[in-house]
Amino acid sequence: MLFWQILIDGFAISSLYALGATGFTLIFGVSGVLNLSHGALMVAAVVAAWVAGGDLGVGSYLGASIGVAVGLVATMLTYFVIVRPLQQSRKIREQEKEIFILTATLLWGIMIQELIAYLYTNNAKTVLPIVEGVVTIAGVRTPANEIFTAVVCWLVIALLWLLVNRTRAGKAVLAASMNARGVTLLGIELSWVYMAVWAIYGVLVGIAGVLLGMFLGVSSYSVGPLTASAFSIVVLGGLGSVSGSLIAAYVVGYLETMTAYLVSPAYRTIPALLLLVFVMYVRPRGLLGRR
């Protein structure tokens, strides 16, 4: 019984972590940007879905779609207003740009967080679930929404894999992550590749956010922890490696769930953080990192 509980609950939460971290690692791999406003973008999507579903009363499907759309818009705004001007600036030295973008996205995240707290208070919010009710699997009463979350996460990840590996545009993205200059020499406009990757990232952030809002709920306080958890999963898996992030998401998800069940819910996050420190010592590039 306990075994099945850990297996099922761990799977749902890990899938969600995986989806959240995939986009984060994708834009790092392709454009070298560590986006520290990641959590804020997710929370923005959740709050939009909450407002649409509650205040505007548009129902769960449309509410979720609006949430994803707002996630996408907020992400593109981040790219055009914060990231791109810094990348193209002639006043900042090339080797300092990374730290400028890091700081700028961090501040941007705080601005979004404060704006949300100001407009909608810092109370936690939950999004109207698309599927309600419970299903019993192997004697474990599981919310249907939890299964829905895992299924959607994997569908989206599979679609992303197809897009990157099986389409021409996707291959350009893949190539850009390997050698940006090579891609430009082939006559592909690099800025279009970046824009496409940010758009994909925006959709992933929106979906992950809305699913998180349905499954667990978030508040403006979640901004920091969400960024931190995506960051540590990505570092554990190896910066820029999508498959590494997927494996790391499951390692972290199951480690947390097992700790909560077998030790105490109060220590939930500690073993995963210890593991991260340990990996940093023995294998600083992460599980599947290339550099």
Partner: peptide, 12 residues
């Protein structure tokens, strides 16, 4: 007793 940062209450 659980941490005030807890987000997943399923195990509890």
């Amino acid at each position: 007793r659980f941490s005030p940062d807890t987000t997943d209450f399923t195990p509890i």
